[in-house]
Design a binder for these strands. Structure first.
Length: 410
DNA sequence: TGTCCACTGGAAGGGAGGGCTT
DNA sequence: AAGCCCTCCCTTCCAGTGGACA
């Protein structure tokens, strides 16, 4: 019998074995169009090789402009050069994941402390204690520590500048070791709200990564495509199209790489030998849709319920609803599914969160005597979103729920 | 010009849940 | 076991507000 896998075997391969080269997390040996930036950062960080403290640095730039890749690249290089001297300890962390005071200190600590029984527990200790142990350990090692805080704005917005204050001050209290901070952010303005002392200490050096243009994106894609694809598997227009589409999206290289990879995956799954521009367009749609459904799917249950309330309102031809409208509907729905009913104050926050995620659009508007409230609109496709929400177990009693008080305008 | 609506969004704090310390 | 600590999710309280309307 012919195996169902046969047609996949017969296929010419599109990818080489090095498919992961197209992941944005992959750090290539060379970063096209970032020489200047890397050079500049290197000149600052090189101080560390002689055992001196490099200036603290802030790096700004939109998503996918190569900030993280450049810094990680430098970290790798630094450690390679430093192999004999052992002067430098490079620490990287992403503050979207580690976004509390305690978390940051704990994370740094555990990157330094190798022996298992002395690790810092993820909860239980006072922050001060973690700080003290950390400082002791750091000083004891007699090295230059470069601590990279990626997406530092997230940390700041969530937990304030206390950690940053302490970390930037730690250097003054160290006797042997030295510590230098590198902050990465895609938000240029966030430092405005920081304590001026922290701000000036953190921003001893500043850099801005400009977005890539279509041409530069093309070079980046070409470089990786050469390694990740077999010969003659890409139609000529594919790379330029990915580059052009992503250049419109603020020159996001990550996006461009994803698009290229997904285009090829679509082709592969179709059993096509060559990736065409049509595949790219499909990939573009898929990326957009996936991003939305992923955010919706990972919403907390209460937020999902609020979102569903917004959809139900929209169903009632109420396309511009207020917080009050949503809250009314929400209470009904929560009652049906047997979820505790939160206060309106809390719902206001959930609405704002979803606004920030781009799932809905909410703006404060005054209706004169009608009061001042948020006007809320749905900004995701309704049918798909409803489908996702109904897939949530906690919301299953609401499957195909339609409001009893359906107001029809006809 | 003032009133007044329907919230907004800050502040403070409670309590549950994780886990350490003694 | 009792006493801590830190974070997360949430409540309570409330001063503040843009603008239609009287």
């Amino acid at each position: 019998m012919e195996s169902i896998f046969k047609r996949y075997l017969d296929n010419r391969k599109i990818f080489t074995r090095n498919r992961q080269i197209l992941q944005s997390s992959y750090i290539p040996n060379e970063l096209p169009h970032r020489n200047e930036e890397i050079e500049q950062m290197a000149s600052v960080l090189a101080t560390a090789l002689h055992g001196d403290r490099p200036s603290n640095m802030m790096i700004f730039g939109k998503t996918g402009t190569g900030k993280t890749a450049s810094v990680k690249f430098l970290g790798k290089e630094l450690q390679r050069v430093d192999q004999t001297l052992k002067n430098v300890h490079f620490i990287y962390m992403n503050c979207e994941v580690v976004d509390t005071q305690y978390g940051v200190l704990q994370n740094i600590g555990n990157q330094i402390i190798i022996d298992f029984e002395h690790r810092i527990p993820f909860t239980g200790w006072s922050t001060e204690r973690v700080y003290n142990i950390l400082m002791e350990k750091i000083d004891e090692m007699d090295k230059v520590f470069i601590i990279v805080l990626d997406e530092i704005d997230k940390l700041f917005y969530k937990s304030g500048d206390d950690v940053l204050y302490h970390l930037s001050k730690m250097n003054d209290d160290l006797e042997r070791s030295k510590l230098s901070l590198v902050g990465i952010s895609n938000d240029l303005k966030f430092t405005e709200f920081m304590d001026p002392r922290v701000r000036s200490r953190l921003g001893e050096e500043k850099m801005v990564f400009p977005p890539y243009n279509a041409e530069q994106l093309r070079d980046i894609l070409m470089q990786r495509a050469a390694l990740a694809f077999e010969r003659d598997t890409l139609e000529e227009g594919v790379v330029p199209l990915c580059a052009a589409l992503s250049a419109q999206e603020m020159g996001d290289a990550r996006r461009a790489l994803d698009m290229l990879r997904i285009s090829a995956e679509i082709a592969e799954r179709n059993g096509d030998d060559v990736v065409t521009e049509a595949h790219v367009m499909k990939a573009k749609n898929k990326i957009e849709l996936d991003a939305i459904s992923e955010t919706v799917r990972t919403l907390p249950t209460q937020s999902k319920l609020v979102l569903l309330s917004i959809i139900v309102n929209d169903d009632k031809n109420n396309h511009h609803m207020t917080t009050g409208d949503v809250y009314h509907e929400y209470k009904d729905l929560a009652d049906i599914v047997g979820l505790s009913i939160l206060t309106q104050r809390r719902i206001t926050d959930l609405i704002s969160e979803m606004d920030m995620l781009g799932i809905i659009h909410a703006r404060v508007k005054s209706f004169g005597r009608g009061g001042r409230t948020k006007e809320i609109e749905l900004s995701v496709p309704k049918a798909e979103t409803r489908g996702i929400l109904e897939g949530d177990e906690d919301l299953s009693p609401l499957k195909s729920y339609r409001p009893a008080t359906q107001t029809t305008l006809m």
